[in-house]
């Protein structure tokens, strides 16, 4: 039974951090109505920013959040303003041109990082990396617990921001109906830029929280892009709370898959859930609450 609880706790903590990354993606998806394939690459860039902070300047990864998140916010705004927004209203054969552009951006970000840091695996070793505490007979890793708590704080702060602040409300209005929002005086162009920046910042936040327990290399983004898609679809496009529950579900499912099926097949569990949800519950968890 202790194995069961161990697996559950581990999956839950991991899922909280996945959720933070996925919330960034679901925000962008909700407002832009596109899938952002560069999201994993943004996570990866955020992780490298933290790595640089730790390795060269000796800044603790959790303090580096205050550097990596603003940096990625800025990068995300630039990407949105100077590349993706220029495509709006352009005639092309495939309607998915913006999605394909995010693939190009992903390629550019990944290869830039590979050029700077090389392909080898990097990791951040803090004093608390391997340490853990016990609840009953279940051991809880300290960096995972801290990461989970910070991720939940961010999620709650974002929720307050989206429901209470002026910009947050404009973001939600644009996500619901872009034309109507424009008629109500929302500067939709500015909102898309802010949203992409915010999404990138959350991606960097998630990546930074994961870094004490993960390793780092330029291609790591692909794993995160797949995970955040699964979570976004699980939770329903554009739903913050859905993404939170989706993230927790994926974390737990992966954890159980790794314990009870096989370590190598834990990612298959996620993908199978993904396809099943796409087929039988296309609206995700969001559609369950509306009934």
């Amino acid at each position: 039974m202790s194995l069961f609880w161990q697996t559950l706790i581990c999956g839950l903590l991991l899922g909280g951090m996945y959720a933070l990354i996925a919330i960034g993606m679901t925000l962008i998806m909700g407002v832009m109505k596109i899938i952002n394939l560069a999201h994993g690459a943004l996570v990866m860039v955020g992780m490298y920013v933290t790595y640089v902070c730790f390795h060269y300047w000796g800044i603790d990864p959790y303090a580096a959040l205050f550097i990596s998140m603003p940096a990625l916010f800025f990068l995300g705004c630039l990407i949105q303003k100077y590349s993706i927004n220029t495509l709006i209203g352009k005639e092309s054969i495939l309607p998915e041109n913006q999605v394909l552009l995010t693939v190009g951006i992903m390629l550019v970000l990944t290869e830039t990082m590979r050029m700077i840091f090389g392909s080898d695996y990097k990791s951040v070793h803090t004093s608390y990396t391997g340490s853990s505490f016990f609840v009953g007979d279940v051991s809880v890793s300290i960096p995972m617990a801290i990461g989970f708590v910070i991720a939940m704080v961010f999620t709650y702060a974002l929720h307050i921001f989206l429901t209470k602040s002026d910009i947050g409300r404009s973001i939600r209005a644009t996500a619901q109906d872009k034309e109507a929002a424009i008629l109500m005086g929302v500067n939709a162009n500015k909102i898309t830029i802010i949203t992409f920046g915010l999404g990138s910042a959350l991606a960097a936040g998630g990546g930074t929280l994961l870094i004490p327990i993960y390793y780092l290399f330029p291609d790591i983004g692909h794993a995160f892009v797949a995970k955040s898609f699964i979570i976004t679809i699980l939770g329903g496009m554009g739903s913050t709370m859905g993404a939170l529950f989706g993230g927790l579900t994926l974390g737990i499912a992966e954890s159980f898959g790794a314990t009870y099926i096989s370590m190598g097949l834990k990612d298959v569990v996620g993908f199978v859930i993904f396809i099943i949800v796409l087929l039988f519950l296309p609206g995700g968890f969001k559609s369950l609450t509306k009934r």
């Binding site: 190009g104 550019v108 290869e111 590979r114």
Partner: peptide, 12 residues
């Protein structure tokens, strides 16, 4: 290894 970077920029 930067050859993919050039390709990515061209694709964008």
């Amino acid at each position: 290894s930067a050859h993919l970077l050039v390709f990515g920029v061209i694709v964008c």
